[in-house]
Write a protein that binds this DNA or RNA. Structure first.
Lengths: 213, 213
DNA sequence: TAGATTGTTAATCGATTAACAATC
DNA sequence: TAGATTGTTAATCGATTAACAATC
């Protein structure tokens, strides 16, 4: 009865499937074959069928996949209907932008608290939430039990605050600090986002393209 | 004389090597072996040596790698000293945060112009740059010839604006819109950043972890 | 020289693609 | 039923790991 382990490449493709299926649904598309979806997404039909069949047979031979149904199933797998409590640490430029720009609700999350160590911005609001001092973190966590934390803090502070948050029950980090959080605790999930690395990759690919010309 | 093609996994690891080496240099570490670096980064020593040898032999048998030298070489490969002109389209929450939070200079880029279609914010400044109207895009590009564009715009606008920018000479996109830019032009590079997908992946991994317990 | 560690080739592993029988 | 397309197994491809000779 134990579920097969899903490989990382498959997991990383799931949100993308979900997005494309939501778009298709909005376009009014009722059914789609693996071949058509493959063409749209720039994947192979084989890969799509393999990916979906990690979770079960969602299609119908001779017909394809029912867009709405498939979108709902993948949404369920991804947990879009969960309400995971999330706090955000560090309300600088990036922290505020993420708080107000990212739709947490659509991704099974609920942003319930924002914290910053800077007294000058404590008390002001972002995304309809007051920015609270770091000192109230412990009380807040024991009252509301957030499960995940977004880290928008300088790299020197990251490890220390992460450790503190783990002590307060945090089970997942969405880490935007310029630091690779690496925890040896298998119960805690880390998703590192390195915007700088992404820009550098673009830089590299661009000037390599130039050189070839 | 033709260079071997570097695989995507290797390219994606380069910025991370660069970061770790910069940190090591700051810590005052002079030399490092592939084994030590592997341990720090959570990779295998074999992989590190393979990766570096895509570009040439930077190490010395019996000694290891000279941290400062290696960092400089990788920086050169990545093009950190270039000054690629970059414009940013869409100065909402996210656009402004990226303009002020991301250090473009450190990544071989220079942010030289910000544009938005909203007249209410045109004329105001972010990251020491005035927000200009979309109408002045053509003039700006023919005068300053930016090579890359950051897209922080709604998904419906993305494809259209991307096409317009390609016409104006843009060769690379750092795309934050909820839309997978796919261009059939091999001269134009796209780096899609999907923050929502990243959060969903975290959600998925977190609640899968829970279920196992 | 002896010890250490690279550069590089060969072996393994895993992910993607191809093929096709099952079936709607 | 015939046609289409899935689910799934087998083949291929590419990336990672292991091994070791070269060499500082």
């Amino acid at each position: 009865m134990s579920k097969q382990i899903i490989s990382t490449p498959v997991i990383r493709r799931l949100p993308r499937y979900y997005r494309f299926l939501a778009d298709l649904e909005q376009e009014g598309v009722i059914r789609i074959s693996s071949g058509e979806l493959a063409q749209r997404m720039g994947l192979s039909a084989s890969q799509i069928r393999q990916d979906f069949n990690c979770f079960g047979g969602f299609g119908q031979q001779g017909y394809g996949y029912h867009v709405e149904e498939l979108r709902e199933i993948i949404g369920e797998i991804l947990g879009v209907h969960k309400k995971t409590g999330v706090i955000l640490i560090g309300a600088g430029n990036l922290g505020k932008a993420i708080a107000s720009h990212v739709d947490f609700t659509k991704r099974g999350c609920e942003l319930i608290g924002i914290f910053d160590s800077n007294p000058l911005i404590q008390g002001t609001s972002t995304a309809n939430l007051p920015i609270m001092p770091m000192e109230s973190l412990d009380n807040f966590c024991s009252q509301y039990h957030p499960e995940a934390a977004v880290l928008c803090i300088p790299k020197d502070a990251a490890q220390k605050i992460a450790d503190r948050l783990i002590g307060l029950g945090i089970k997942g980090f969405w880490n935007f600090s310029h630091y690779d959080l690496r925890l040896n605790n298998p119960d805690v999930i880390v998703e590192n986002v390195h915007l700088g690395d992404s820009l550098l990759t673009l830089s590299y690919c661009m000037h390599r393209n130039e050189e070839q010309a």
